[in-house]
Every structure is written in C-alpha cells, then in structure tokens.
C-alpha cells in the first residue's frame, strides 16, 4: 500500500530522516514508535506531501507522492499532530470544505459527512463552533476530516497527545474500529499505547528504522536477555553445587535474607528460557530441595524500545546482551 524507499530529509545541516525504507501492507494498524525528535512527524509529513524529501521515494497505492500527488493523496487521510481546524467554523461547515476539496459533491458529500460524524460520534456538537469544543472533540473532528472521502490509509500523528485518560481510551477504541475499513498508521512515543492497538510496530530512532515487527515477535527476539529469580530454604553451598549442573547460566547472585531463606538471581544467555528453568527445577527436585518461588522475567517491549533507541540507531535486535540499568526501567 505504501512503499518508502531510501527516504532522507535534511533541515539545513540537520539530518532528520536517514535512508529510511519500509513497506506498509493493506489492512493493519501500524504503530510508528520513537522518542521525541526521532523523525516520526517528518516521515509522516513527507508521506502526505506536506513536506518534500531531500532524496528517496514514497509510493502510495502505486502513485509516487511527488510525481502524481493528487492521485496519491486521494488514498490518504491525514491528521497532523495539531489538528488543522478552522476555529470559527462548525464541524459541519469544516467537513463540508474538506469533503469538497476531496472532490465530493451533492448527495454523496452529505452522506459522507453524516457517516463520518456518526463514526467519530460528534453528532451532538456538529453545529457548535470548533473553538468552543473540548480537546477530545477537536481531535475527533480532525479524525473525521481524515476519514472523509473514504481513503484507504489513515495516518494519525500522535492522536492521543494532550487528552485525558477517558478521551484516550475513546480515541483508541475509535482507531480499533477504523481498522476494519482502513489501513491505519499512527505515531506515538507512548509504548503501552502502541502495544495495545497496533499489530505491527516500526521503531525509529535518530531518523533510522531500528525495528519493524509485531509486538510479540519484538519481545521474543530479545528473549535471550532473560532473568530467573527463585527463593529457596536450601543452604548457600548446596545451591551453588546445584546451579553448577544447570547449563547456560551467565551470572548468579545469591542473597541470604533475614528470614533465613535464600534469594537467587540468575542470568542466562539461552534462547529458550523454559529449558533452563526446567533444568533448574529438576536439579533441585532430585536433591529434595524445595523451590519456594520461581519467576521468569522476560524483556518487555519497553526494554527493547529503550535499548534500540538509546544505542545510536544501530540495529541490535539479535544481539542479546542486556545492559544492567534495564531492570530499573522494566515494568
């Protein structure tokens, strides 16, 4: 549906987007994730012809956005970070203008306006001035504008920024509904949000694509960075002897607690964390030593995000080493 090839954008000497390439297929919700200033908005602006690229190509439904701008833009509905609203108009007037500019006329225009107003649920305020609406309603009017003309792709730049928690949930539900008819691309710097709505995630940092996968696979790709913790009432020297039988342990830490129990923290470089924990369990079971508690800690998406975006944009998805400080950030 959308093909981005070797996209590069300089602002003067500042490199905002660097040789970015990816392809977006029809019918999913894509999340554009990156810290502030990573180049998300720049990329979205270029994809919607609001900005020119220094080099590279963007193709929408087979039309080059720079060469055949009109055909390409008919396939896209765009909501910029700040919704582009005419404050002294009503939503109905505003949507009429956008619909006409998208080439809708007469009955079709009226039908489409009624449809999108219903979709984003702004019937109650359709004849109030936009300047008097709450932020959540303004955002909905902005989304309604993007939906007019039934474009195949809806691009939303940080659609939930500045909204209160209830509004955020409403907008997220709305985005999920849109998925049935449209391909949705949304950007965010909030991880849980992208994790909750998106089927595929593009992580960009410093203008480069550092990861592009489903949330599950992204998590699995870093499973090797795992930790096992357990509590036992065995003695420290017994535990050490037992741990020596377990393979793939890179680091062990034992701590005698005040209640007489022993806590241990293990790190492993194995790709299969369950194999390690099974081995651990039987090692203790064979010697009749109880494991009172056994926990596995997987790398969360947040860990991946921090690691990928802090590493200067290098792709380290397969690397597998875990920085110590990550555990503080983990959820």
């Amino acid at each position: 549906m959308i093909k981005v090839e070797h996209l590069t954008k300089y602002y003067g000497d500042f490199l905002a987007v660097s040789d970015l390439s990816f392809e977006i297929e029809e019918g999913h919700v894509y999340g554009f994730l990156g810290p502030n200033g990573a180049g998300k908005t720049t990329t979205m602006n270029i994809m919607t012809d609001c900005l020119s690229a220094t080099s590279g190509r963007v193709e929408v439904g087979g039309h080059d956005i720079f060469e055949e701008a009109e055909q390409a833009k008919k396939l896209i509905g765009y909501l910029p970070e700040q919704p582009p609203l005419y404050m002294n108009e009503t939503p109905a007037e505003y949507l009429r203008f956008v619909g006409e500019a998208k080439g809708l006329r007469g009955d079709e225009l009226r039908a489409q306006i009624d449809k999108v107003i219903g979709q984003v649920r702004i019937e109650a305020v359709r004849d109030r001035r936009i300047s008097a609406l709450s932020k959540g309603y303004k955002q909905r009017v902005g989304i309604a504008q993007a939906l007019l003309g039934n474009p195949k792709v809806i691009i939303l730049d940080e659609p939930t920024v500045g909204l209160d928690p209830i509004q955020i949930i409403e907008i997220r539900d709305l985005i999920k509904e849109l998925e049935r008819e449209h391909t949705v691309i949304l950007s965010s710097h909030i991880l849980s949000e992208v994790q909750a709505i998106c089927e595929k995630i593009l992580i960009i940092a410093h203008g480069k694509l550092v990861a592009f996968d489903t949330p599950d696979k992204l998590e699995r790709s870093l499973l090797s960075a795992n930790e096992i913790t357990f509590t036992t009432d065995a003695k420290a020297n017994v535990v050490r002897a037992l741990l020596a039988k377990v393979d793939h342990l890179t680091d062990t830490e034992l701590e005698e607690r005040e209640d007489g129990l022993l806590s241990a923290r293990l790190k492993t470089d194995s790709k299969d964390i369950y194999a390690v924990s099974r081995q651990l369990f039987f090692a203790f079971a064979e010697e009749d030593q109880p494991l009172l508690e056994l926990n596995l800690k997987k790398a969360s998406l947040e860990d991946i995000f921090i690691e990928l975006t802090e590493s200067g944009g290098e792709d380290q998805a397969g690397d597998g080493t875990t920085p110590e400080e990550r555990e503080d950030e983990a959820v």
Binding site: D49, C50, V98
Partner: peptide, 12 residues
C-alpha cells in the same frame, strides 16, 4: 492556525 498542513495534504 496550522491549517496550511491540511491544504498541503488535500488532493488539490
């Protein structure tokens, strides 16, 4: 009002 972005992104 930043509505120029709308004009750029519309198919006109």
């Amino acid at each position: 009002q930043k509505t120029d972005q709308l004009l750029y992104s519309l198919p006109i």
